[in-house]
């Protein structure tokens, strides 16, 4: 017991000095013309896996409780169960790779609006205000796909109230969104996003801090042919 506490204290000390970890979140949507498709959400912490593995030996860091591997797996299973309960959502898969600290959730949807329902249900389950969720719409007639995220002042305030060492975690974090379509992309609103050579996919990479400072930075309206 004592030795565990000692190890904990020393690892905590080291982590406090060096905890500017780097992680990436990837959001992928493969959208069919009829509005159905598959979404994959991935958290990739492998670039910081030595730090994450060290932190996972602790019970808390910077005053925040560190979940165990079993708890993370349990939460993922709960998420999958909640998603399966949403009408129109199917083929739900989760993956937890603790060799590389990569976690992912993927599911099929019949309508884009079901993604919003899924996010809403997940955020509510985790007691996160639903205003933190992005919304997705797809108009089959006009073939327009829109992603909207409006930063709530409360979210930004919460970030600003974080301790400096907690803010460090987000300093180098990246967000990547990839939307793949069956039709060619005719135009899009977000000039920071790029269109693939095949004209059937749109990618946008941005630091997560950009989203925290301006939610609108990830918005896009994509017009398909």
């Amino acid at each position: 017991m004592k030795i565990k506490n000692i190890l904990t204290s020393i690892l905590l000390l080291i982590s406090l000095v060096t905890l500017s970890s780097c992680f990436e979140t990837v959001e992928e949507i493969n959208l069919n013309n009829d509005g159905s498709g598959r979404m994959t959400l991935t958290f990739n912490g492998s670039q910081s896996k030595a730090k994450l593995a060290s932190v996972m030996k602790l019970s808390s860091v910077n005053g925040h409780r560190v979940p165990t591997v079993a708890e993370i797996k349990h939460e993922l299973a709960q998420t999958a169960a909640k998603l399966r309960a949403i009408p129109g959502i199917s083929n739900v898969k989760t993956n937890a790779d603790f060799q590389n600290y990569i976690l992912s959730v993927s599911f099929d949807f019949k309508e884009v609006s079901q993604i919003n329902a899924a996010f809403g249900k997940m955020l509510t389950a985790y007691k996160i205000p639903t205003y933190n969720a992005a919304t997705y719409t797809y108009n089959k007639n006009t073939k327009t796909f829109i992603k909207t995220y409006q930063l709530n002042p409360a979210t930004k305030k919460q970030y600003n109230e974080l301790k400096q060492e907690d803010k460090e975690v987000f300093k180098s974090a990246q967000y990547t969104s990839v939307y793949r379509f069956q039709s060619l992309v005719k135009s899009m609103a977000n000039t920071k996003a790029s269109v693939s050579a095949s004209k059937k996919a749109v990618m946008h990479k941005t630091p997560i801090l950009n989203i925290i400072n301006s939610g609108a930075s990830v918005n896009n309206s994509i017009q398909l042919q």
Partner: peptide
């Protein structure tokens, strides 16, 4: 609800994104 006060000098701004219609926000 105040506008998002985003400092263009400090961060990348996706100016085109503003063209997207904002979702109305209901304050709590």
């Amino acid at each position: 609800v105040g506008d998002d006060t985003y400092d263009e000098d400090d961060y990348l701004v996706d100016s085109a994104a503003t063209a997207v219609e904002a979702v109305p926000y209901t304050p709590y």
